[in-house]
Amino acid sequence: MLIQLTYASRTARILGPADIKDILGASQRNNARADITGALCLNHGIFLQQLEGDRAAVNALYHRLLKDTRHRDTAVLDFGEIPHRRFTSWSMGLLTSLDTNRQLFLKYSSSADFDPYSMSTSTLRSFFDEVMQNVRWLE
């Protein structure tokens, strides 16, 4: 069964460019081995990630993330069965708070700060639909 899980977490410490590069590289390697695809957004200390794949593989990855000391306040925001993958081109893409992406983050946030914790399921889905179409991804 193919599922999609969306979660948010806060960074436990300030992450520098090297940390982000390491996270992205490890995610790409590990996710490719587990046949998981997805996207990771990082904006002002908040991770928002959407994962796709076999239920057991995604569940195992999420439980590893819960133990990762770089994350705190982890919460599942959306979970469900999907008919097909949307992130077929990469094992993990990264969307950061580049100036070109800032308006998109704010468009879907209920405040001046990006806060996926307060986003409804339909807003989260619309956000990821739009980011797939219109933003600059780091791969």
Rank of each mutant, 00 (worst) to 15 (best):
S9T: 03
A26D: 09
L5S: 05
D129H: 14
F114Y: 10
L24R: 07
A39W: 09
N30E: 12
S91D: 13
R29K: 15
S89D: 14
T11V: 11
S27N: 08
G16L: 02
E139P: 04
N59L: 01
D78R: 02
D129S: 12
I46T: 13
K107E: 11
A60R: 12
Q28D: 07
W137I: 01
A32C: 08
L61T: 15
F114V: 01
N31Y: 11
A75T: 13
Q28T: 05
R29I: 13
A60F: 05
F127R: 04
D54E: 12
Y7S: 03
N30L: 11
S120N: 11
E130Q: 13
V58N: 04
L66S: 05
G53T: 04
H84R: 12
N101H: 10
M1H: 10
Q49S: 06
L138Q: 12
F79M: 04
H84T: 07
T6Y: 00
D99A: 13
Q50D: 01
G93S: 15
F47Y: 07
A75C: 09
M119Q: 13
I14D: 11
L77K: 02
G53R: 07
R13Q: 15
Q133N: 14
G93F: 13
F87S: 01
L51R: 08
Y62S: 02
I46R: 14
L42T: 03
D129Y: 11
R13N: 06
R136H: 14
L48M: 13
L48R: 02
L15P: 02
L124T: 07
I14P: 00
D129G: 03
D99F: 11
T74S: 07
R85C: 08
D19N: 00
R33T: 11
D113N: 03
F128Y: 15
F79I: 02
R55D: 09
L77D: 04
A34L: 15
H63T: 09
Y7M: 03
R70P: 04
S111F: 11
R13T: 11
D54W: 02
D68F: 07
S91E: 04
R136G: 06
A34T: 06
R136I: 14
G38K: 00
M119R: 13
L77R: 04
Y62N: 02
L98M: 11
R86G: 09
L15C: 06
D68H: 07
M92S: 06
S118D: 15
Q50M: 13
P116I: 10
L2W: 08
L66N: 07
Q133L: 15
S109F: 00
S89A: 08
L61N: 07
E130S: 14
T74R: 00
L95Q: 05
A75G: 00
R70K: 05
Y7F: 13
R10V: 00
D19Y: 00
A75Q: 14
L15Y: 07
A112W: 06
S110C: 09
F114C: 00
F47T: 02
L51I: 06
Q28W: 10
L138C: 05
